[in-house]
Simulated assay, not measured.
Amino acid sequence: MFKIAVLQHAMAAEIDANLDTAERLMRDAAEAGARLVVFPELQLSPFFPKRRANAKQDPSAQYLMDRTHPALKRLSELAKAHKLVTVANLYMSRNGRRFDASPVIDADGTVLGVSEMVHVAQFDGFWEKDYYDHGEGFEVYDTAVGRIGVVICYDRHFPESWRACALKGAEIIATPACNLAHENLDLFAHEIGVMAMQNSVYAAMANRCGNEDGQAYAGHSVIAGPDGALLARAGSDEQILIAECDPRHRLKIARKAGWLAELQDWLKPGAEGPVGVS
Rank of each mutant, 00 (worst) to 15 (best):
M1Q: 04
K3Q: 01
A5I: 01
V6H: 00
L7F: 02
L7E: 00
E14Q: 07
E23M: 09
M26L: 10
A30Y: 05
A32Y: 01
G33H: 06
A34L: 03
V37R: 08
V38R: 07
E41H: 13
E41Y: 09
E41F: 11
L42A: 07
Q43G: 00
P46G: 10
F48H: 12
R51A: 14
N54C: 06
P59C: 08
L64W: 02
D66A: 00
H69L: 01
H69S: 03
P70H: 06
S76I: 01
A81Q: 15
N89W: 13
Y91T: 03
N95M: 07
R97M: 14
A101E: 09
V104S: 11
I105T: 11
T110S: 12
V111G: 13
V114L: 08
S115C: 05
V120Y: 08
Q122F: 14
Q122R: 05
Q122L: 06
D130S: 12
D133W: 08
V140K: 12
G146A: 05
R147Q: 10
I148K: 04
C153E: 08
C153Y: 04
D155P: 11
D155K: 10
H157N: 08
P159Y: 03
W162T: 07
E171P: 01
I172M: 06
A177P: 04
L180D: 00
L180Y: 02
D186T: 07
V194K: 01
M197P: 02
Y202T: 04
A204G: 14
A206T: 11
N207R: 13
N207H: 14
R208W: 00
R208H: 03
G210K: 14
D213F: 15
Q215T: 15
Q215A: 14
H220G: 05
S221E: 07
I223G: 06
P226C: 14
A229Y: 11
L231Q: 15
L231P: 15
A232N: 05
A234V: 13
D237P: 04
Q239V: 08
I242M: 13
I242R: 08
R248A: 13
R248P: 01
H249C: 06
R250F: 08
R250I: 03
L251W: 03
A257L: 13
G258W: 00
W259L: 10
Q264H: 10
G270Q: 00
A271F: 12
A271N: 00
G273F: 01
G276L: 11
G276E: 05
